[in-house]
């Protein structure tokens, strides 16, 4: 199989404008292009995230309540270079940063002293206006994502 990486995640939006603002002004993505129907009406907005991957925003509603207890999708995760700096930047962009995702407590200072999770990486979360969690992760020298570890299932 010649899969080379994650290309994009496609999200349907009940709050299109807010979700667009979240991924652009909030997380630092840039509008890359739109796809339009025969009448010239956009049905899909592509947002380029740093690193050459995309978030697709479908101009399409969903009928479920998008609660994590009812869905298979848990979160997407963005790698950050400097955890504390990224958290402060996102807060400055008006994004709420939490310790564990939607409904969990706000991440508390000092961000520099955040303890790594069991995977060895520094983690925090933001949640988009649709209720999709987006994890922030800085790898450390102990990250199992880099070093690997026991694999038993």
């Amino acid at each position: 199989m010649n899969i080379t990486g994650i290309g994009h995640i496609g999200i349907r939006c009940n709050s299109l404008e807010e979700t667009f603002e979240f991924y652009t002004k909030g997380l630092g993505g840039e509008k890359a292009f739109e796809l339009c129907d025969e009448d010239g009406v956009p049905y899909l907005t592509y947002i380029a995230m740093p690193g050459g991957q995309f978030v697709e925003l479908f101009h399409e509603n969903y009928t479920g309540d998008n609660k994590p207890q009812k869905r298979s999708f848990v979160h997407i995760c963005l790698e950050v270079e400097d955890f504390a700096k990224a958290v402060r930047q996102l807060q400055a962009n008006g994004v709420k940063v939490t310790s564990g995702g939607d409904g969990s407590p706000l991440l508390e200072e000092p961000f520099e002293e955040r303890t790594p999770d069991r995977c060895g990486s520094l983690c925090a979360f933001v949640t988009d206006p649709e209720g999709n969690d987006v994890e922030l992760m800085q790898f450390t020298e102990n990250s199992k994502q880099i070093k690997g570890g026991k694999f038993h299932v």
Binding site: I3, T4, I9, I11, R12, C13, G64, N132
Partner: peptide, 29 residues
Amino acid sequence: ICPGQFVELFNMGGPFQGDNSVKHVCYTV
């Protein structure tokens, strides 16, 4: 998937109900 990119699978959850926000994840080939 490739160095630094992963799928994380949780041995829990469900039953999955309703038509929710995430439509798909796309991998480049």
